[in-house]
Design a protein around this nucleic acid. Structure first.
Lengths: 201, 201, 201, 201
DNA sequence: GATGAATGAGATTTCATTCAT
DNA sequence: AATGAATGAAATCTCATTCAT
């Protein structure tokens, strides 16, 4: 009766379901998506879903964990270069927009998903905490080195991350058309943040 | 059931339902709330709800329209004072946080509500467009007057509004404890935006 | 779309659902019965069931409560007559079999229903406790009056009720054919209990 | 998964599954138990279960067959002694309670298990028929010998077995605490049955 | 024989919406 | 205008059973 009755390795099935869920969330939104949609898309039986994820929320969280990891890696690598503060800041902005460009749907899921997905992108997630930490460190060092205006580095980090997220949402999520003005927004963020943070000689 | 008047005037009923819905959303979140909860809270019958609102989403939108109006009025009045750009900027920040402090539940509804409530706080809403317009004007004039750094005024306005919203969410929505750190965040926003925007002599 | 969309009074609906449930339990057993079966039988919508009962178990319990009440009333009324102990004992046996004859299906539900229905017919049910109490009293008085053999009245009452229940199950529940041998069993119970309990002059 | 032999002899596997099923039924009841639970407990794969038993009901029936065999053997051996009727009756009661004490969980399974397990303890089972036969014989002979009151021996046998079963359920199944009052109930059964059956000189 | 991933029918439950009163 | 019992579509989740390996 089943055309495909093949036992796949666990990671394969997980990826298969994750990809299907991502597509469905993209097309119908979090609330609009059903487990039925996801398994139909994945081409597996209803029960198979529950072998790998315990609920719709669990897949969504898994998807967002992936996003945060990529975001974290991008920010981290922007820090690596041995250059001045303003270069690092610029890299960070660029890297963030880069990741966002490729994951606009997940941003949408995270930010206009629902009650349940929201915490994943915020304080409750360890990945988010790690990013916040990285940026706070960058700011602390830059302030000490006189490259950045004096201010509370953690508060500044939270606001900068927030501004980036918001700009990304404006750029890729709210508007229907993919990239309309996304470059302008990225440029705007650069100007704003350089003005706000970089100490002028 | 008790001595409630059977027939209330329409605006009274609407307010009654709006207040009930707001309470229910606050307590259970958008997804968790049911029409049933709302009418129980309002003390009216199930069917009565549909005489005034066509769906759960419609009440939520109505609630958020109210919030945007209050936000718009606050920003507008901050513009009224005949002072310098940096004073106006400060007033705007203060007014925004002021409104947010009193409407944290609606912010939560708007931002972690659901797919359906999100547009209301963004480009799709006329009220939002009006605020954006006000701020853009403020920036245009300030740039012309040399009080503000040169940049695209609309992009700047969108980013500033975004930063404000994000800070407000961080301050009042994500964290459980009401105002923990909300003052610090407000202060951070002031520093950041003054640095970013106000032209230094 | 609905041929019948009539609002019935609550007691009417409850009785309607109770009757439907009883029929379905009789035909399919407790485990075999589904809520779907019950509502189909009752001719109401799926959701209507939940307006009146919270689960399959809840209807079953309600059904068994009714049975225990009838059983209690029968035993009680057998006590009323102002006659000798052995007459009362006989009346009690007769009354029990009488009720059982008319409620064989509920006995089946109670005794071979499932984990969930069992407690209703036993110590956990107040109705059962009341019957036990009545019989224990009867025995106490009869022992004091020298009409009954000396023994622990409560233990005796529990065993006698148990014997009656078992005989009833044998008579009406286990065998398929309704009354095959039910008279013989009733007669056997009479002989056994008279021998066991009634003091011989 | 560890060093378990891959291939066990059939009787060993059966015992293994039977023991696991018994444990699971004891802990979760018949309805609450799943095949999944049983195989997990037995440490074998899901499919292996079906190599030995065709369904959950089949294992339960197998378990109860074992109980009935033990019960039959106990009753049989109580008959063996070459003594008077009342001694044999006493032995039978003692032996029954003895077996019950060690198999309370299976009694529970039999009586509050479900529709499906019930027949096993009653007329449908050959083991039950054999016990009924043994007791009927005992009674026939005792009546002929004038040691027992005159009555239909088969009816009497069915009722006596029923009374025993019920007393056992009261003693070991319904109440939570294992043996609370079980001795008193056993004593009560002895008194009742001696009074009821043994002919007085 | 043994495995265990996969299946999918089916059961329970919720809830927005309708409409006769 | 107001009511609220009734509706029924739809969603989630479970679990006995199969079968390719």
């Amino acid at each position: 009766m089943a055309a495909r009755r093949r036992t796949e390795s666990e990671p394969v099935r997980r990826r298969q379901l994750l990809a299907a869920a991502r597509k469905v969330f993209r097309e119908k939104g979090y609330n609009g998506a059903t487990i039925s949609d996801i398994v139909r898309e994945a081409g597996v039986a209803q029960g198979t879903f529950y072998l790998y994820y315990s609920s719709k929320n669990a897949v969504a969280v898994s998807l967002l964990d992936g996003l945060m990891e990529r975001m974290g890696a991008a920010v981290e690598s922007a820090m690596k270069s041995d250059t001045s503060f303003d270069k690092k800041l610029g890299s960070m902005i660029g890297a963030s927009f880069q990741v966002a460009r490729q994951n606009a749907d997940l941003y949408r899921l995270a930010f206009i998903g629902a009650d349940e997905t929201h915490p994943e992108m915020h304080s409750e997630s360890p990945e988010h905490a790690s990013i916040l930490n990285t940026v706070t460190n960058l700011f602390s060092i830059a302030i000490d080195a006189g490259e950045m205006e004096a201010m509370d580095p953690e508060i500044a980090a939270r606001l900068v991350i927030g501004l980036l997220q918001h700009a990304i949402i404006e750029a890729f999520v709210s508007g229907e058309g993919e990239s309309e003005g996304s470059e302008q927004l990225e440029q705007g963020v650069r100007v704003l943040l350089v003005n706000a943070l970089v100490r002028r000689g």
